[in-house]
Amino acid sequence: MQTQEKEAGLCFPHLLNSSCRRSGRPPAESMFMYITLSSMSVLTVALNLLVIISIAHFKRLQTPTNLLLLSLAFSDFFVGFLVVFQILLIDGCWFLGDVMCVGYYIVDYVITSASVEMVVLISVDCYVAICEPLRYSMKVTKRRVCISVSGCWIFSFLCVFIVMKDNLRQPGRHNSCYGECVVVFDQFSGLVDILFFFIGPVSVVVVLYVRVFVVAVSQARAMRSHPLSVHGSARVTLKKSDLKSARTLGLVGLAFLICLCPYFSLTLTGQEAEFQASSFAFVLFYFNSLLNPLIYALFYPWFRKSAKLIVTLQVLKPGSSQINVE
Rank of each mutant, 00 (worst) to 15 (best):
Q2P: 00
Q2D: 04
E7Q: 10
E7C: 03
A8T: 05
G9P: 02
C11I: 00
C11G: 01
F12Y: 15
H14F: 10
N17E: 15
S23A: 12
R25P: 02
P27C: 15
P27N: 15
S30G: 13
M31S: 15
M33I: 13
M33F: 15
T36M: 14
S38Q: 06
S39A: 09
A46Q: 05
S54Y: 11
H57W: 08
Q62C: 02
P64M: 03
P64H: 06
S75I: 03
S75V: 07
S75D: 08
D76V: 09
F77T: 10
V79E: 12
Q86E: 15
I90K: 12
I90S: 11
C93W: 09
F95I: 04
F95E: 12
D98T: 11
V99H: 14
V99F: 13
M100S: 14
C101S: 11
G103I: 01
D108C: 07
I111T: 07
V116L: 03
L121V: 01
L121H: 07
S123N: 14
Y127L: 03
Y127E: 06
I130T: 04
C131P: 03
C131H: 13
P133A: 08
R135E: 05
M138T: 04
M138F: 05
M138S: 04
V140D: 07
V140C: 06
T141L: 08
K142S: 01
K142H: 08
R143W: 09
R143C: 04
V145K: 03
V145Q: 03
V149G: 01
C152Q: 04
L158V: 07
C159T: 02
C159W: 06
K165S: 09
D166L: 05
L168C: 03
R169S: 04
P171G: 12
H174Q: 15
N175A: 11
N175F: 10
N175T: 05
S176N: 15
C177R: 15
Y178F: 14
G179R: 13
F185E: 09
D186Y: 15
S189F: 12
G190I: 01
V192W: 11
V192P: 00
L195G: 00
L195Q: 00
I199M: 02
I199R: 06
G200P: 00
P201Y: 10
S203M: 01
Y209Q: 15
R211I: 00
V212G: 02
F213S: 11
V215L: 02
A220H: 09
S225A: 11
H226C: 01
P227D: 08
L228D: 06
H231Q: 05
A234L: 02
R235P: 00
V236S: 09
K240Y: 14
L243K: 06
K244M: 08
S245K: 02
L251M: 14
L257F: 11
C261R: 10
P262N: 12
P262L: 13
F264L: 05
T267L: 09
T267S: 08
Q271I: 10
A277Y: 12
S278N: 11
F280H: 14
A281M: 07
A281S: 08
V283T: 10
L290I: 00
Y296L: 13
A297S: 11
F299E: 05
P301V: 06
F303M: 14
K305C: 04
A307N: 08
L309R: 11
V311S: 09
Q314S: 08
L316S: 07
K317E: 04
G319L: 01
G319D: 02
Q322A: 01
E326H: 03
